[in-house]
């Protein structure tokens, strides 16, 4: 009876989350420095007729950033849950594997040495940099039995530090690169090319599917490596598979929206508050919540000081930090 109620709550909660995502999408299409009414938005999205200014704004500006926000947010939320399960560290962020720093260094290199100027040109640099950095972290952290949570954490943070140093070195010598990079680096959904979503779709789909299938493995990993092995888990294999999923998800998200840091950290914490420690549900819930958070942050960023905008990456931290603090204060379980 009890389990049935819990199951029902979890399913209903998931449906409620999907509704929140829909509302967020609606708000993102309707609101901005120019408010556009529902009819015009529907017209822009669904009719094939001639387009007025309002329809153009919706189609060319708001739809792309909403789509990118949804995809990047879902990917980051999922990757964050995966990362925290993998390292058994509630402080882990998907950026911890060196993914963000790797992507950032590659983008800085692209701007400074290859003269790439359009954000759409950054994608493969960002993705490649993320993958390389994460592979390095795994290689360093892996012993004979695969990486331990502690060595993954330390290796990830160390790699991030080296890469960040190189980024700063380049930025200090090259004013033009700093001028471009500082806008990419705060994480924003503006001016990104929506066709990159299609380009990265294979990675996103494979990454998400793999991640969602890992719930049961993460649950037994949470009990410790030895117990997990006793339960018939192949611990090393699980860690490698999870690592690949994280690289796919985070690499794609970072290519799409820049190094957004907070989503992957805060989303699993909020989710855990509702569904408990079961990773099958944490992973499932983290996707829509991540998507909603990023889209809402982007929308709020448009409304704070029109006509100028505050980047989504900054707003995410402004909303997410108080939420995280409130959660941590309210939750006795975190304190052990």
């Amino acid at each position: 009876m009890l389990t049935f109620t819990r199951l029902a709550t979890r399913i209903l909660g998931f449906i409620a989350l999907l509704v929140v995502v829909l509302l967020a999408v609606g708000a993102s299409l309707l609101l901005g420095s120019r408010s556009i009414d529902v009819a015009a938005v529907l017209d822009a999205v669904f009719s094939r007729g001639t387009k007025g200014v309002e329809q153009m704004v919706v189609l060319d500006l708001r739809v792309p950033r909403t789509v990118i926000g949804l995809v990047a947010g879902a990917a980051l939320g999922l990757a964050g849950a995966l990362m925290q399960g993998l390292t058994r560290n509630p402080l882990a962020d998907p950026g911890l594997l060196g993914v963000n720093a790797g992507a950032s260094l590659a983008v800085v290199t692209a701007i400074a040495f290859f003269g790439v100027t359009a954000p759409s040109g950054y994608i493969w640099f960002a993705f490649g940099g993320a993958a390389l950095a994460a592979t390095l972290v795994y290689a360093v952290a892996s012993g004979r039995t695969g990486p331990s949570p502690l060595s993954l954490t330390l290796a990830g943070a160390a790699t991030t530090a080296v890469l960040t140093s190189f980024i700063t070195l380049i930025l200090l010598r090259d004013l033009d690169t700093l001028a471009q990079y500082r806008f990419w680096s705060v994480g924003s959904l503006v001016g990104r090319d929506v066709s990159t979503v299609a380009t990265l779709a294979p990675f996103l789909v494979v990454g998400a599917a793999t991640a969602l299938l890992l719930g049961r493995s993460l649950n037994s990993l949470a009990l410790g490596d030895d117990v997990a092995r006793g339960l018939g888990q192949r611990v090393g294999l699980t860690r490698i598979v999870a690592g690949v999923a994280i690289i796919f998800l985070c690499g794609s998200a970072t290519s799409l929206a820049g190094p957004l840091v907070f989503v992957g950290l805060v989303v699993p914490h909020i989710v855990r508050r509702f569904v408990g420690a079961d990773y099958r549900w944490i992973l499932l819930w983290s996707m829509p919540l991540g998507a909603a958070l990023l889209v809402i942050a982007d929308t709020i960023g448009r409304l704070i000081s029109p006509p100028s905008e505050v980047e989504a990456g900054i707003v995410v931290a402004l909303i997410g930090a108080p939420v995280l603090i409130a959660l941590v204060r309210g939750n006795k379980a975190v304190t052990r």
Partner: peptide
């Protein structure tokens, strides 16, 4: 630690801005 990290990100956002 968690509260600290949340504040770290807030400060980081302010710096980025």
């Amino acid at each position: 630690v968690l509260v600290g990290i949340a504040l770290a990100f807030l400060a980081q956002a302010v710096i980025g801005y």
